[in-house]
Design a protein around this nucleic acid. Sequence first.
DNA 1: ATATCAAATGCAAATAGTTGCATTAGCAAG
DNA 2: CTTGCTAATGCAACTATTTGCATTTGATAT
Lengths: 150, 150
Amino acid sequence: MTALAGLEQFLISKGCKLTRSRRIILQGLLDNEGWSNAREIYAYVQARVHKINFSTIYRNLDALTSIGLLCRVERADAVNYYTLNQASGHHHHLICKSCHKICQLDFCPLPQMDPETLQNFTEVECRFDLYGFCHECQENKKYTDGNGSD
Amino acid sequence: MTALAGLEQFLISKGCKLTRSRRIILQGLLDNEGWSNAREIYAYVQARVHKINFSTIYRNLDALTSIGLLCRVERADAVNYYTLNQASGHHHHLICKSCHKICQLDFCPLPQMDPETLQNFTEVECRFDLYGFCHECQENKKYTDGNGSD
DNA sequence: ATATCAAATGCAAATAGTTGCATTAGCAAG
DNA sequence: CTTGCTAATGCAACTATTTGCATTTGATAT
């Protein structure tokens, strides 16, 4: 079974419809291997197939993220990036403020926190992202705007 | 010395100019006592004084937040809210997904993390917010859109 | 193959927030 | 009080993203 077919099966198993757009979006993410934003995914789908609308892209990225197929990260420049979730379970990210590299962080502070600290909040979701300068960018802190090719 | 005068002095001590808009924004935040968003602050300033531009509001909220005078929190509906920073040092927040109440969380996971986990990233800033249902909203999980009066 | 129905899509308008650039206004020095 | 410099402002255009609503389409039952 191809990687694409596996993703498609997972999608269907979650009760989502396998549409033309979704197929291409998944193919695009498989092709890219790294992280892509909505604009890049839009360009990929648009170039390859039919016309597509940005709202469809956004709605699909939302849907695929919420069933756990994609992983979403907000870069320091406030743009959301997506990648296929490599089934590595719940995790967070380290994001370089200079080159925008995204590194996986296999640590979540939430399980260690007691209910008292959580002030009796329930169904707590954790937003936890670290923004800093990666090893390669120590000397060269650019604060790029994210339009460069990285 | 009034509370306002104290804030103004702090602002000047950070090398910022004390402008008409900033004075009113600070007065508005003192009046409100809770959390306000850009639109509410805009309305307050607009009603009270001269015409003001939204970009001035946003730029000032940014500036006042970065010198540490204000505290910024993104609610679950993706709108930013601001309040005067009660000099309680670095902290994070618990945000109710139903009534949007914001509670202070005097805990930061960052200091406990070792450099290895941080993959040699430096100057790391921590974005850490918890979204859940507060004690009062256990039974009544509304997911309001944030346009209600709360 | 055809009908059916909800989910997905396209479209257009709206949202929160940002940015470049020309103008204005604090504040300090003369 | 006037001058000068820079930070702050207004304006208009732009960004990423969301939403309501009418239409289409994928999966399922006939």
